[in-house]
Design a protein around this nucleic acid. Structure first.
Lengths: 231, 231
DNA sequence: CTACCTTAGTGTAATCAATACACTAATCCC
DNA sequence: GGGATTAGTGTATTGATTACACTAAGGTAG
C-alpha cells in the first residue's frame, strides 16, 4: 500500500520451494548446492527472484519446473519469511512454497543459474542450510504433517498405481507413527476416492498386492463435506 | 535468492492487516477509507509499506498499533498475495495478517498517513474494497473459522471476564451455526483453561451469569497434546 | 512338488467422543 | 407474588476410533 505520489513501484522478492519426495523408504527434500555468493557451496532449497510480470504462484511453479521438468504438481504457499537479516545483502523477503512430487529418483534436470547440483536429502537429517532455509524446511514439514491428515496428498508421492500398503507406509513415514493395517484400509477405502484396479504388483517374491489409483473426480465431489484421514 | 553479483538488494512490500472485532452481535472487520491515490475514497484494510529494518511480523504489529493503539494482540500471518496486477502502480506484493482484538468499539485512534477514517464493518456484508482486499478478507475469514476450532481465540474478542454464554455466542457467530449449550459448556470446561471467578454479571435484568477468565498458563501446559474445540 | 517364507487381506468387540434433548434455578421487573 | 428471561445442569443414543490375530496367496529353496 503505497504512500508515495504515483511513481512506478516495484518489489524484488524471492520464491523458495521445499520439494518433498519419497523413495519407498524415507521422506526426502530436494536441495541444491549454491555456486554463487552469498552462501556459495552451501546447500539450500531451490528458489529464485520473482519476475516482474509473474504471478507469485507461477514463480514457484517455474522454480520447480526449471529444476525437475515437472508440471501440474501439488504445490501450496507456506508463508512469507521476512526477518530483516535473513539475507546478508539487504532486505529480501521470500515467499516459501512446498511441493510434493512423485518418484523422487528419476530425471533431475538441474539447474537454475546459481546451483551446481541437486540432491535428495532425508528430511529428518538435513545439513546446515543457507539463509533461513532450515527454518523454512521445518515449517514445511510441520505443514505437511498437518495437511496429510485432511487432504489426500499421500498419493502425490506415489506412482499412479499403488498398493494400499505402499500408501500406508507414506502415512507412517510422514506422521512418524505406526498405523494399524485394518483400520487404515477401512478408513481410506470408506472415502470412496480410491479406484480398485484389476491389476496386481509384479516382481515381488510373495503374494502380490492389488493396485489402486486415486480418482480425482470422486474426490472433488466428496471434499465439499470436509473430512479427515488418518486420525 | 539473488542472482546478481553483490549489490545491495531491497524489497518494497506492504503488510496488510485484517482486524477482527466483535460487538456482542456480529463479527466486524476494521476498514479504513483511503485518502490517496490509487483507490482514493475507497475502503480498504489497513496496511503500509514495511520499513527496511523491520521484521515482517513487527511491521504488521505496527500497522495495528498505529491504528488502534493496541499491543500484544493475537496476530498471525495469513499469506502473501502477489498477483502481478494487484497494484496499479506496479509489482507490489503484500503479506497479509489477521488480528483479533477485544471490545471492538472504544478508542480507535486513527490514522496512518493515507487514511481519513476507520470504521467497523460487519464481516459478512463488506463494501467493495481497494486492490485485492476483498480476497484477503475472505481468506482471513476462512482461516479464522478454521483456527477457532483448534486454538482458543474466542477469548481474544471478549473482555477479560466473560460468561460462558458470551463465549458460546462468539463460536456461533464465527462458525455460523447454533451450538448446544450443554455440550458447549461440557467441552470447553473439560479443557481446564477457564478459571471460574467468584463474580457474576451485573446490570442484567435476569439471572446473572457466572464469569470466567481464560488462563493462559494452564493453556500452555495443555496445548502440547493438541486438541479441538467445538467440533 | 512340498515346505517355508513373506506379505496381502479380512471382521468384531470395546472404548471413547459427539450428539440430542428438557427441565429447574436465579434474578429482575411489574 | 407472578411472569419474564436467561443460567445452569445430566443422561441416553449414536457414531467413530481403537485394539487385536488369523487365513490366503504367491514365490523360493530344497
Amino acid at each position: 500500500m503505497p504512500i508515495r505520489k504515483l511513481p512506478k513501484l516495484h518489489s524484488d522478492f524471492s520464491v523458495d520451494c521445499v520439494i518433498f519426495g519419497y523413495d519407498g523408504e524415507e521422506l526426502k527434500v530436494l536441495l541444491i548446492e549454491r555456486n554463487e555468493e552469498p552462501f556459495a557451496k552451501w546447500m539450500a532449497i531451490p528458489g529464485n527472484l520473482a519476475q516482474d510480470n509473474e504471478d507469485i504462484d507461477q514463480a514457484a511453479a517455474r522454480v520447480l519446473h526449471d529444476l525437475t521438468g515437472l508440471e501440474n504438481v501439488f504445490m501450496e504457499q507456506l508463508q512469507a519469511f521476512g526477518a530483516p537479516n535473513r539475507h546478508p545483502q539487504g532486505r529480501v523477503i521470500t515467499v516459501a512454497y512446498y511441493a510434493i512430487i512423485k518418484s523422487s529418483v528419476n530425471g533431475l534436470h538441474p539447474l537454475s543459474s546459481f546451483a551446481t547440483k541437486a540432491v535428495w536429502w532425508p528430511a529428518n537429517q538435513l545439513p546446515e542450510l543457507a539463509f533461513d532455509h532450515q527454518q523454512i524446511v521445518q515449517a514445511a514439514l510441520k505443514r505437511l504433517k498437518n495437511r496429510i491428515r485432511y487432504v489426500p496428498i499421500g498419493f502425490e508421492l506415489l506412482p499412479e498405481k499403488f498398493s494400499l500398503t505402499e500408501l500406508q507406509e507414506i502415512y507412517e513415514v510422514i506422521l512418524d507413527k505406526p498405523i494399524d493395517k485394518r483400520n487404515f484400509r477401512k478408513k481410506i477405502l470408506s472415502y470412496g476416492f480410491l479406484t480398485e484396479l484389476n491389476q496386481k504388483q509384479t516382481g515381488v517374491s510373495h503374494r502380490a498386492a492389488r493396485l489402486y489409483k486415486f480418482n480425482q473426480k470422486q474426490y472433488e465431489e466428496l471434499k465439499q463435506n470436509g473430512f479427515y484421514f488418518v486420525p
